[in-house]
Simulated scan of single mutants.
Amino acid sequence: MLLQAVHHIAVICADYQRSKAFYTDVLGLQVIREVYREERDSWKLDLALGDQYVIELFSFPDPPPRASRPEACGLRHLAFAVKDVAAAVQELHQKGVPTETIRIDPYTGKRFTFFTDPDGLPLELYEQP
């Protein structure tokens, strides 16, 4: 098996409209397609970052909560590359999204920080100038 790339990340949200607005209006991901699956009473929203398909956003009736902190087993976080972490943090703050303090990766010397989506999913901004 020769893996070529990560194809997508699937996220189940508690409030579909709120999460759709967060990922599109706040983070700026582009809608590829949106489908309502009546048999599942579920929305599926395919989102792209630039030309790359990256996230499937799902809604399901009454999804169970998932433990995410502190350091729970499973997916730790989803990281987005940005050119300037400080500028991205300022933009998030202007949109009402709190972030952690910017830190420096001791191994790469790059700046990074964390914030959460509307359901508390940990998200990271990692500087790639």
Rank of each mutant, 00 (worst) to 15 (best):
L2F: 13
L3Q: 06
L3M: 13
L3H: 09
L3N: 12
L3W: 11
A5V: 08
H7L: 14
I9F: 11
I12H: 04
I12T: 15
C13N: 02
C13G: 05
A14Q: 11
D15E: 13
D15R: 10
D15V: 06
D15C: 12
Q17I: 13
R18Q: 14
K20Q: 08
A21P: 01
F22I: 05
F22R: 00
Y23E: 01
Y23W: 05
T24A: 01
D25I: 03
D25E: 11
V26Q: 01
V26C: 03
L27M: 05
G28A: 03
L29N: 00
Q30N: 09
V31S: 02
I32F: 05
R33C: 07
R33Q: 11
E34A: 06
Y36M: 08
R37H: 09
E38F: 10
E38K: 12
E39T: 09
R40G: 07
D41H: 14
K44C: 10
L45Y: 00
L45A: 01
A48H: 00
A48Y: 01
D51H: 06
D51G: 11
V54F: 01
I55K: 02
I55R: 00
E56K: 06
E56Q: 09
L57N: 02
F58K: 03
F58W: 13
D62K: 14
D62Q: 15
P63C: 12
P63N: 09
P64E: 12
P65W: 09
R66L: 09
A67Y: 11
S68P: 02
P70W: 13
P70I: 07
P70T: 07
A72H: 12
C73V: 15
C73S: 12
C73G: 10
G74N: 10
R76G: 13
R76H: 15
H77W: 09
F80P: 01
A81H: 08
A81I: 05
V82I: 06
V82H: 02
K83G: 14
K83H: 14
K83R: 15
K83D: 15
K83Y: 14
D84T: 06
Q90P: 09
E91C: 08
L92R: 04
L92Q: 04
H93L: 15
H93N: 10
Q94R: 13
K95F: 05
K95Y: 03
P98A: 06
T99R: 04
T99L: 02
I102N: 03
P106V: 05
Y107L: 11
Y107K: 14
T108S: 15
T108G: 06
K110Y: 08
K110E: 09
F112P: 05
F114E: 04
F114Q: 07
F114L: 13
T116A: 11
P118M: 04
P118A: 04
D119F: 02
G120R: 10
G120Y: 07
L121A: 07
Y126R: 07
E127I: 02
E127T: 04
Q128D: 15
Q128I: 15
P129C: 08
